[in-house]
Computed example of a mutant assay.
Amino acid sequence: MNYQQHTKLAGALAATLLLAACSSSPTGRQQVLLFSEQDMSQLGAQSFEQLKQQEKIYTDPKTNQYVQCVTDALTKKLSGNQAGKWEVVVFDSKQVNAFALPGGKIGVYTGLLDVAVNQDQLATVIGHEIGHVLAHHSNERLSRSQLANIGMQISSMAISGTEYHDAAMAGLGLGVQYGVLMPYGRAQESESDIIGLQLMAEAGFNPNESVSLWKNMARASGGSQPPELLSTHPSHSTRIDDLRAEITRLPNTPASKPNCTL
C-alpha cells in the first residue's frame, strides 16, 4: 500500500471513529468521546492512588470534615452513574488548587482554603471541578490526543508497509500517565463554570459568591496571569462577567442552605 493510500485510510479511520463517538456535553457542545465511563473511572482511580502516594495528605479532622461536608452537599444533587459518595482527600500544600477525577475522586489543596474563604466559595471551586467530570472533559482531551496519534502513526508506518490495525490499537490505548490530569481548554473551563454554578445553586450555596471567589483568585495571582489569548483559562474579568450573566438565569427558588463550617 502506498503513502497516498495510507493517508486516505487514516482519514477514513478517523472519520469512522468521529461518527461512532460523537456526543454532546451538558451545555450542548459537540464532543468526541472514544472511551467508556468504565475506562475513565479506572484511569481516574489509578491516577488518584498515585497522587495519594506522592503528595502529603492533610489529616486535620476539622478541615477534612469541612471539605467533605461541602462536597457531599454538591454530590447529593447528582444522578445516574455520578450519584453516591465521592472520595475526598485534602492535600497539605500551598497550591491554590483542587481537582476532580472520573470515578468520583476529589482532591483539595490546603492553599485553596486561604482564597476560598467560606463554604460558598469552596463550593464554587469543587462544583467547577465536578463540572469537568460531568462534561467528560478528560475523555474529550484523551480522545482528541488519540485521534491525532492514530493519524501520525499510520502516516509514519506507510513507508514500512505495516498494517494500520496496530497503529489504530496503539492510538486508542490508555497508556498515558496522569492522562486525566491534562490541562483543560478555555471552552471546557467556561463550560465547567456554568455547570458548577448551576450545581452549587441547586445544592443551596450562594451563587453570587462565585464572583467573590474569582475576585479573590485575581488578587491571589497578584496580576501575574498571562493575557487571555495566551492562556488556556478565561481571564478573571471574562470569567466574572460570564458568571454574573449566568447567575441572572438561575431559578429564583433557593434550596435549603448547607451548614458547613471550618
Rank of each mutant, 00 (worst) to 15 (best):
S190N: 06
G171Q: 03
A170C: 00
A168H: 02
I194D: 09
N139E: 14
N149I: 03
D193K: 06
G173C: 05
I195M: 13
L181K: 08
S156T: 04
V176W: 01
L142P: 01
E163R: 15
S145Y: 12
M152A: 13
A148R: 13
E129W: 15
Y184M: 07
E191G: 09
A168C: 09
I159N: 12
V176M: 11
E129N: 11
L134K: 08
G185C: 01
S145H: 13
L147G: 07
L147R: 05
L147D: 08
Y184H: 12
G127V: 07
N149W: 06
Q177H: 02
A167V: 11
A170R: 08
A148N: 11
I130M: 13
M169A: 14
D193G: 10
Q188E: 13
L172N: 06
G127M: 07
T124H: 09
M182D: 03
E129M: 15
Y184P: 00
S138R: 00
G175K: 12
A187I: 06
N149A: 15
M169C: 04
S143C: 06
Q188P: 02
G151F: 02
Y164M: 12
G175L: 06
V180M: 13
M152H: 00
I126N: 05
R186A: 03
P183S: 12
M182G: 11
L197W: 07
G173T: 11
